[in-house]
Design a protein around this nucleic acid. Structure first.
Lengths: 339, 339
DNA sequence: TTGTAAGCGTTATCAC
DNA sequence: GTGATAACGCTTACAA
């Protein structure tokens, strides 16, 4: 049988409330009783029942992290673990525990979030989503539950952290233009996914700013991460006029694309230059080493938790957004070998 | 204000217990009331308070996953996320949620586990540990809390899953002997860590079985994963008689070792052959491609959860151990270029 | 088939 | 300073 606050109270010959006060380190308690109770707590190896405590407090020290995609996939990509590490590092420090929730579909996400919020398991939520319209987000806003989104959402009443995806797209184009390219393709645009759309906007703007006409056929749509860069690239290779450079929305996409390029008997970067985004560990060692953008997922996660804590502790409602800087890492996959 | 079971009861003009029974899908309930209540539940968007439910049931549908090392580090290595993915994939399917707990020290581990068990937040625990003596494990055994260890422990009253690390060590040696090597080093033995020790035992046995004398100086000790393969390798390079092959206890160690070898003006595998363990994604693309052992972390995690569930649901106490097979993946870092 | 009431282990609000 | 007592939201004997 588990030892409860009542057992301690009995043994110490005080009331449960006194024990409770000792635990809470209330100033109203005499040094003598405090000491006595503390000793017995130790002796009996008592630990407060967090569930009971949460029930009466109507709040736990648990925050939920809701990730899209089945567990099998989510963790495949180094981005997620890194993000999680960032969240966990802060959460640990602040005495919060992390509840992991993987959801495969939007419906599942909605149900999960309902369970987590109304079920009052979690004190707050960190939501990983980058769809511009997300019913879960709207619902959360409506009920006023504390949460933070990683990835931009269009609902204005939302705290979020994200990279500057517009800038990322913009800079990648500029990088290629610097290398003398004029036909730059964009691989992996997924309508409705803000991350890719923001990058695409950056891409377009950069073209315009440099007087290059935008060419519809150079934008290849896809599902986000799960997509197959190999197949997408083939579409580009089939064009009458091929691109000379490709921006892939993710490194994994880029790897697939490079494979397709090689199979077509072409060389990277001589025939077609390639750059990815996310800077996965493999990028550096790939053949050729892949130009990419360091996204700082760890910082993204850290910041998300910090924001959530602000929401949790302050009573004024404010809506913040944090932009975590990204960093272009140039490697040989995108470098013109000579002028 | 949150909607509770009482609100539903009032609205439906039944008692709370009836509502509770409807939720539990009790057979004692008439179709009519059931339907009526269900409708109102939907209307009012009611979700049971899991905390309250856990309190009365004295058990939640949450399992804790306790990982050693700070969050920053744990997720660095692909092994952990993969493991986690395995656990999560099963847990999701069975309606369990996962509570993530990172612990930096053994003390922290003990405190965390106490909190998680006595605090009755979690129904069961999955512990990642491979120390042969672990007070946390002993404590868990003592109080009879349901848990499973990933990694072998010596306490016999424990359910655990692990790879056959003895065999892994054994096979790697045989592989090198096949290639004509006779001086095979073992990099990254960490005393007290069963994973490395079992591998070392396999290594020794293989040598003995093939009539090769065991040579103390060829075993380089270290802290486990966090160790620096570069520095460790230097010790081997400083020997009067260098090894011609190196088994590194982890791929990251192997990468460091290769770097040191290259810096010494030697070539892999011509001068010194190298093999790692864990088969991280980078291994395939490293220069040279690294021979490694596929550990199947996903399956490891999956199996761990299955075991835990068995413990959770059955009332007889049994102690099982599962061995997940590993698989040697030969690449050029360990291949003799010619006979 | 349904309702009543007790209790899960805490904390908070009163009294004293 | 400390102790009753009443919640928190749910489940489950036991009654009806």
């Amino acid at each position: 049988m588990r030892v409860t606050i009542n057992d301690i109270a009995k043994k110490a010959q005080v009331s449960p409330s006194t024990v409770s006060r000792v635990i809470a380190d209330s100033p109203l308690i005499s040094a003598a009783t405090k000491e006595k109770v503390l000793k017995i707590i130790k002796e009996m190896n008592y630990h407060p029942n967090i569930i009971a405590r949460s029930l009466v407090n109507r709040s736990s020290r648990i925050i939920g992290v809701v990730m899209p995609g089945m567990a099998e996939q989510s963790f495949q990509h180094p981005f997620f673990p890194e993000l999680l590490a960032g969240i966990a590092s802060m959460a640990n420090k602040e005495g919060y525990k992390i509840l992991l929730a993987n959801v495969a579909t939007l419906d599942e996400e909605r149900e999960m979030v309902k369970e987590l919020t109304f079920g009052s398991i979690t004190a707050g939520l960190i939501l990983l989503t980058s769809r511009d319209q997300n019913p879960t987000v709207d619902q959360l806003v409506e009920v006023g539950f504390p949460f933070v989104v990683i990835g931009r959402t269009e609902n204005p009443y939302v705290n979020w952290v994200d990279n500057d995806n517009f800038l990322i797209g913009y800079q990648l184009v500029e990088h290629f233009l610097d290398q003398g390219h004029r036909r730059v393709a964009f691989l992996g645009y997924s309508p409705g996914v803000t991350v890719t759309r923001d990058r695409l906007h950056g891409y377009k703007k950069a073209l315009v700013d440099h007087g290059i006409p935008f060419c519809e056929e150079l934008v290849v749509e896809s599902e986000f991460i799960s997509a197959n860069g190999y197949d997408l690239m083939k579409r580009l290779l089939a064009l009458r006029e091929r691109p000379t450079a490709v921006i892939a929305c993710d490194d994994l996409l880029a790897f697939g694309a490079i494979k397709a390029i090689h199979e077509a008997g072409l060389k990277v970067p001589v025939d077609i230059a390639v750059a990815g985004i996310n800077n996965v560990p493999l990028a550096e060692f790939y053949n050729p080493p892949l130009t990419s953008v360091k996204i700082n997922a760890f910082t993204l996660g850290k910041k998300a938790f910090e924001m959530l804590q602000t929401v949790l502790t302050s009573d004024v409602r404010s809506y913040n957004r944090a932009i975590i800087p990204a960093e272009l890492v140039v490697r040989s996959s995108s470098l013109a070998t000579k002028e």
